[in-house]
Design a protein around this nucleic acid. Sequence first.
DNA 1: GCGAATTTCTTTAGGCTTCAAATAATTGGC
DNA 2: GCCAATTATTTGAAGCCTAAAGAAATTCGC
Lengths: 200, 200
Amino acid sequence: MRSIVAALGLRPASIYLKLKTLGIRAGANAGRDWLIEMLDSETKAVETPEDHAEELRLWLRLLTCTTLIEGEVRGRLRQRFDVTLPRFDLMAQLDKAPDGMTLSDVSKRMMVSNGNVTGLVERLVESGHLDRRTSETDRRVQVIRLTKLGRAEFRRMAAEHETWIADLFADLTPKDVRELMRLLAKTKASAQKSAARRKP
Amino acid sequence: MRSIVAALGLRPASIYLKLKTLGIRAGANAGRDWLIEMLDSETKAVETPEDHAEELRLWLRLLTCTTLIEGEVRGRLRQRFDVTLPRFDLMAQLDKAPDGMTLSDVSKRMMVSNGNVTGLVERLVESGHLDRRTSETDRRVQVIRLTKLGRAEFRRMAAEHETWIADLFADLTPKDVRELMRLLAKTKASAQKSAARRKP
DNA sequence: GCGAATTTCTTTAGGCTTCAAATAATTGGC
DNA sequence: GCCAATTATTTGAAGCCTAAAGAAATTCGC
């Protein structure tokens, strides 16, 4: 259905002005309320410089929380185990996959670029934490998995890591945690939908 | 005060077992509830390999949300304005400070290292978005502010940026947003407290 | 005022990260 | 079977980021 705004040949921004000029909103037009409402809501949807300050603040707060916690975890990993967060994250993915993963899998799971994973894996193979081999059924594919050393070290780190996280969230009640889980699930879904709208 | 667990000469992990063996929890010990409770809570606090899986899941979900949104914003900034997220963030800080900020201020606000800011500022001065001068009252301090160009470009980007954020959070109701704000504030406070415990 | 401690900023080395282009292997259509 | 499209990974250039060490200026304690 064609837009009323377009149908009237108006530039959306000018609508409120027009209406005001014409005195339409002053209630002198009984029976046209439907039109006014329609214009009103459409104007809102199409052009009014809407106030999204709340969402913006929410985003900044979300980012702050993550940055704060991430920095803390990064620092503790370095201090206690002399390991970086990306290395830890990669090992965490592999720990959940005893049969190994392909680089692409890892890349998707970690939400980082392919090239990034290539370098990360290179260093972890170098240090003896990862084993890497070309798939026999598809020679494009590289399958990586934790070595015995890698798994042992990861388990040791993960146990302590879990207590750090618990401590960082210590002031949240179980109810808070549940509620956050729910709202963040909703947030994630919303963001994914929005991202999909951009690149279909 | 010395630990009850230690006073009884028990290894904490064995407490639940002992209690079970002795049938103490079966309610056959009227008048000793205080002891049971004390042992119970102490065991919980001291040794039980506690289940922090919920907090861990929460952290991962928080991280996922942030990564998702951040990646989306980064991509759109690059696509639409050929600008990086850190540059945009730095300009956002300066836009809120017409009188300029010192590098340290920026560093604290953005929660990144000093050295990082040095490089970031260098590139933005180079491209004409920032003005940088040594403070006259303290020659250690560098004061930076947006140039006319920088401010204009930022405002243009910020306006669009705000709509992206609104779209990313579009499925959240105003109530969801308020609730998330509240819970994330609590989360931030908790994390800050925990971080302070580590480095006092 | 002097010297030590502190603050502000830069530098350096190493690693992380992205994007885009290139390489190599597989798959699908015919 | 052949060739185009797709998929998996690597490479290269540029930029981001940190920790740690260092340089310059200021402040503090006396």
